[in-house]
Simulated scan of single mutants.
Amino acid sequence: MKLYGLKTCDTCRKALKSLPDAVFVDVRKDGVPEVVIERAYAQFPDKFLNTRSTTWRSLSEDERARPPLELVKEHPSLMKRPLIETGDQLYLGWTADVKSALGVA
């Protein structure tokens, strides 16, 4: 299991604490494989971009109009976090549904 996120993200830290066997991948430092980004966007097109992030607020209107995949490849911190990959399954965020699916109380 891999958990893609940011070291400074409280939600990512909570998820990692609940998933001690997960391998943490810092999206700023290590990036996210293109194939994983594309799969995540295909599975979560409406939830993929974190439009409440500081990075999003710093973008101009022209930049925000660019395709989401381009934006996330250029600014990985724009991806909603955490993105959890386990086998061929992807989970986005740290909601009750994700916790339940992963067997976390």
Rank of each mutant, 00 (worst) to 15 (best):
M1H: 14
M1G: 14
L3K: 05
L3N: 03
G5R: 00
G5N: 00
C9P: 00
D10P: 05
D10N: 13
T11M: 08
T11S: 07
T11D: 06
C12K: 08
A15Y: 00
A15W: 04
L19W: 12
V23S: 15
F24G: 03
F24L: 02
F24H: 08
V25P: 02
V25N: 09
D26Y: 05
R28Y: 07
R28L: 12
D30S: 15
V32Y: 08
P33W: 12
P33V: 13
E38R: 15
E38S: 14
A40H: 09
Y41M: 15
A42S: 13
A42K: 14
Q43G: 06
D46W: 05
K47G: 08
K47M: 12
F48I: 15
N50E: 03
T51Q: 04
T51A: 01
S53Q: 02
T54D: 13
T55H: 14
W56R: 12
S58C: 11
L59W: 00
L59Y: 07
L59A: 06
L59P: 04
S60M: 06
D62L: 14
D62S: 15
D62R: 14
D62Y: 10
R66M: 08
L69W: 00
L69P: 00
L71G: 02
V72D: 00
E74P: 04
H75S: 06
H75A: 04
P76Y: 04
P76T: 01
S77W: 01
L78V: 02
L78P: 04
K80H: 07
K80E: 08
P82I: 05
L83V: 02
I84M: 01
E85Y: 11
E85C: 10
Q89T: 03
Y91I: 00
Y91W: 05
L92S: 09
L92W: 07
G93K: 04
W94Q: 03
W94D: 07
W94T: 07
W94I: 06
A96D: 07
A96R: 07
A96Q: 06
D97S: 13
V98Q: 10
S100F: 07
A101W: 07
A101I: 08
A101Y: 07
L102R: 03
G103F: 03
V104K: 10
A105F: 09
A105N: 11
A105W: 07
